[in-house]
Design a protein around this nucleic acid. Structure first.
Length: 189
DNA sequence: CCAACGATTCGCT
DNA sequence: GCGAATCGTTGGC
């Protein structure tokens, strides 16, 4: 099995570890993209994770090779783009700083809010359901880690109704672009 | 077969 | 801040 550059960089990543490393990484989708500033980790033994109850037709990509995309439809309306980590673990991309490709993103979005929120981000970048399962390096979708160790914000995940809450939401410190502000008690790593 | 439920967003109050 | 929109997936009967 051959690994592409991204897969080699993240070798056997846990979701929490990968979620942190993806902050400040660069995402590109067919020429549009930006710096990732907000992520969330989802684990295997995690009631909030789609993988919690095992593999189903929808979440099969979460059990595939690390470094691939998991795309699913949310609330019957939006799409979300997720980076697969270790088997059954994954990282939801919640916000990027839109550049380059602002013009094409603006055309796809009917709002000045381009990429702050998982559904908005997916729409702005033109993510499609058929992108589910594709590798994140070389098929139109790519991620390149920055190599930096940026200051991270940490807080509870968003939109989770499960009782078990974990501080698995990460943000780039100093950015005003996240989908929602980090709570005052959010701490840096 | 049918009912419940979202890893959300948008618009209105 | 709150509720509607919207529909595929999932699980129970």
């Amino acid at each position: 099995m051959t690994l592409n550059a991204f897969q080699a960089d993240i070798a056997d990543p846990g979701a929490v570890d990968l979620a942190q490393r993806l902050i400040s990484a660069r995402l590109d989708v067919r020429g549009a993209g930006g710096v990732i500033i907000e992520t969330e980790a989802y684990g295997l033994d995690d009631p909030a994770s789609h993988s919690f109850k095992g593999m189903t037709p929808r979440n099969a990509s979460m059990f595939g090779p690390a470094g691939h995309a998991y795309v699913y439809r949310s609330y019957g309306i939006h799409l979300c783009l997720i980076v697969v980590a270790r088997r059954g673990e994954a990282v939801l991309l919640r916000a990027i700083l839109p550049d380059p490709g602002v013009e094409s993103m603006t055309a796809r979005r009917n709002s000045p809010q381009l990429c702050n929120g998982p559904g908005r981000l997916a729409e702005a970048l033109g993510i499609r359901l058929e992108n589910d399962g594709v590798t994140l390096d070389g098929t139109g979708l790519s991620i390149v880690l920055s190599g930096d160790m940026p200051d991270l914000l940490v807080g509870p995940r968003i939109g989770i109704s499960k009782p078990t809450e974990r501080p698995w939401r990460f943000g780039l410190a100093g950015e005003t672009g996240p989908s929602r502000a980090f709570p005052p008690y959010a701490k840096s790593l």
